[in-house]
């Protein structure tokens, strides 16, 4: 079905919450990709979005909750051709965000983590903001521009 391109999808939103189990990682990225489809993304943009979401959700599960159980919440909203995604957990939080952002740094070498998650998120979305404090959980906000600006 043809989407009416003169009607921006701005204002639409979606929320998802689930327990921090690894089998929900695929659910999270597929749900976000399906929601983002309203902006007519290219396959490459969709892959980037799915990868960034997968990294954020995996971080919540293995770092936030350290493989224990908690809740992961995702909210997505559309803004003038861009999608904003917030991934939140109530886990242990990040002590040193600058250190966590270093490529190849991982706090879990025991799990064979590559330490590339945040680097990948940074390069696959246009904006990445991380809000975290020890013991208070982590909130990751990502924004990615999808649709070309429409000619007036």
């Amino acid at each position: 079905m043809d989407r009416d391109k003169s009607m921006p999808a701005a204002g639409n939103y979606m929320r998802l919450q689930f327990p921090s189990r690894s089998e929900n990682e695929s659910l999270a990225r597929v749900a976000v990709a399906a929601f983002a489809a309203q902006l007519d993304p290219t396959l490459e943009q969709l892959t980037e979005l799915k990868t960034a979401v997968s990294e954020a959700v995996t971080n919540a599960i293995i770092h936030g909750y350290e493989d224990g159980e908690g809740e992961v919440r995702i909210s997505c909203s559309l803004h003038e051709g861009a999608i904003e995604i917030v991934v939140e957990d109530d886990g242990r939080g990040i002590e040193d965000i600058d250190l966590a952002r270093q490529p190849m740094y991982t706090s879990r070498p025991d799990l064979e983590r590559s330490g590339m998650g945040l680097t990948i998120m940074e390069s696959f979305v246009d904006e990445l903001a991380i809000d975290s404090a020890p013991g208070r959980g982590t909130r990751v906000r990502m924004r990615k521009h999808i649709a070309p600006v429409m000619a007036q």
Binding site: E55, E112, M116, G117
Partner: peptide
């Protein structure tokens, strides 16, 4: 069909 940094960890390991 899809891979994220976990796959990189698997290769490096």
């Amino acid at each position: 069909d899809f891979m994220d940094s976990s796959g990189l960890g698997l290769i490096l390991g």
